[in-house]
Amino acid sequence: MARRENPEINAGSMADIAFLLLIFFLVTTTMNVDSGVSKKLSEKPPIDYVPPVIKEKNIFEVNINRNNELLVEGDRMEIKDLKEAAMAFIDNGGGTGNPDEDGTPGKACDYCKGERSDASSDHPNKAIVSVQSDRGTEYGTYIIVQNELLRAYNELRDRLSRERYGISFEELEESFKDAKKSADLKNRVEQLRRKVEDIKISYPQIISDAEPTS
């Protein structure tokens, strides 16, 4: 008789408890996505490598000293002005660009909106930004400078992309990535890839790190 009165444990709320646990774990799990400023290093030059002669006017010299102060093209500058100065230099378009791979001579930059002064860069694909820092420079400052220079390039790319294709460069790259993932329309992917390449070649990012002063 006593056996029959032993009631079953109500397991109805078990699901609620488990759900609560599940949601707790889902919420507290943080996916820390690593992000940062990407750079590609140049390959190690062979021992007998002779660096090509580059005209002074095609080099944009940025120096950072050990007190985190900036010297741009021989003048002191604040970090906030760096982007404008870099853009003016890259976008100058005073002469002709590098010849193509197939040997056709370089053309003048027809999409540049700079001053076309003789004293600044010839063409975006000839313009070299050279950053020289001291060994004692703070890493934070170094990254800010790199970031400002990248911003200058990205702004120019953005402008060109809007002009040619009507959307910002960021959106263009984004849609290219999406198209690649779905991969259903081959010629759309190809078309977008060509657009992205076109912008990238028009304003190539040439930022070099010079040997540090110590």
Partner: peptide, 22 residues
């Protein structure tokens, strides 16, 4: 200091690890 970063970078270049991300 940037000097430390540059030391690392030179060593990375020696082994051809060229893609870096700060």
């Amino acid at each position: 200091n940037v000097g430390t970063i540059i030391d690392i970078r030179l060593k990375l270049r020696d082994v051809n690890a060229l893609k870096i991300n700060y």
